[in-house]
Design a protein around this nucleic acid. Structure first.
Lengths: 212, 212
DNA sequence: GTCTATAAGTCGATAGAC
DNA sequence: GTCTATCGACTTATAGAC
């Protein structure tokens, strides 16, 4: 709505995003936001009225950012292999800039407060989420050319595709607690992941459907 | 520690597990647990002393249940294909009985309260988590027989394997809010998923590593 | 063991001086 | 616009009667 005029307002908002990302709505405290922003707690209410309103603003921004990260990564690149590669590289590079985003979205949606419901209902009405039509088309083409198995379930495949890319970000806290050495090379792991996901998925759908 | 003697004690614990699963530590309220268990709020403190202690007990149980779901699903079945199939079927069937479990673990670990740290440190000391050695061995064997590409990164593959099975449970709230019709057939989707994951992953690692 | 009533603490929100 | 002080709602926890 209103422009973010003051620099202090932007400062608060930027810190609040971080705190909500890390802790979620219930875990986030106005006091911590104020402390980390270097301002008084009263300032938060002066600029943003209430915790609910501050959260609503941030949830909407972050949720759209997440959905757009996925939707915008679907781009036709000529053939299935290139389109797959582009999606995988793009989504991983986008999410690595806000690695807490997937878990934040999953957590807040699973709790499902009123702000969450309203935001999604509003977004469903105006800004219809893009379906991954590009990948669906490429799959159909590849099937007809005989490039991939014609019995492939496209919904399951997209689930596997998106999941394989997002899963590391969702599972990071779990993996970190058990195998901390894996996360020390987090950036390397993500780079290698791009290649690994492409190879398994692309050659996976090229293989013949011999076995049940 | 102590035996769960009273039936009322078991009743409270069973309800508390559900509430913590749904809402996490910060979202769960003692009042709601008492109401849903049909007892007085004071009873909760009589039996479990404090919210922290009740949560600690439940977190430890649920975290172990989750880790064991994964570890126990790794079983040698003679060859790679059968071992993969068994893992996929087993982990999905176990998790479908407590579908909120993966998201609960991810959420609580990402927040990382003192109870969480203590529990994991204790488990790391005594009950060393099983590594998926069985799958690693099968992969090595299959490589030497030339059944699968020798350049396959086993860590990335296990990431993809476990992730592809767990991801639907983590992403369910997100998918449900955007494509509710997909979740209406949740059970069917999970059954189809077993087959889809096996085919993509097994034929994926059998494919030749021609392209970068 | 079970309940009511209430203490004690936390957190969001605001009043009011500057 | 900014700060201090404080209010009031909510939540955990306990005291004490039965």
């Amino acid at each position: 709505m209103a422009e973010l005029s003051t620099s202090k307002e932007k400062q608060i908002l930027s810190v609040a995003i971080q705190v909500f990302l890390e802790r979620g709505f219930h875990g986030a405290k106005m006091q911590e936001i104020a402390d980390r922003a270097g301002v008084n707690k009263a300032m938060l209410h002066y600029y943003f009225r209430s915790k609910d309103r501050l959260y609503a603003m941030i949830f909407e921004k972050l949720f759209m950012e997440f959905m757009n990260s996925i939707a915008d990564s679907f781009e036709a690149e000529g053939d299935l292999a290139l389109t797959l590669k582009h999606f995988i590289n793009s989504i991983i590079d986008r999410l690595r800039q806000t690695p807490d985003l997937p878990l934040f979205v999953a957590r807040e949606l699973s709790w499902g407060g009123p702000v969450v419901y309203k935001t999604i209902r509003r977004m469903l009405q105006k800004n219809r989420f893009k379906t991954p039509q590009i990948i669906l088309d490429e799959i159909e083409n590849a099937k007809q050319r005989g490039e991939i198995d014609s019995s492939l379930d496209p919904v399951q495949f997209i689930f596997t595709l998106v999941g394989s890319c997002i899963y590391p970000f969702l599972a990071r806290p779990i993996v970190e607690s058990i195998f901390p050495e894996l996360i020390e090379n987090w950036e390397t792991l993500l780079e290698q992941r791009k290649e690994a996901v492409f190879r398994v998925l692309y050659y996976g759908i090229k293989g013949e459907g011999t076995n049940a």
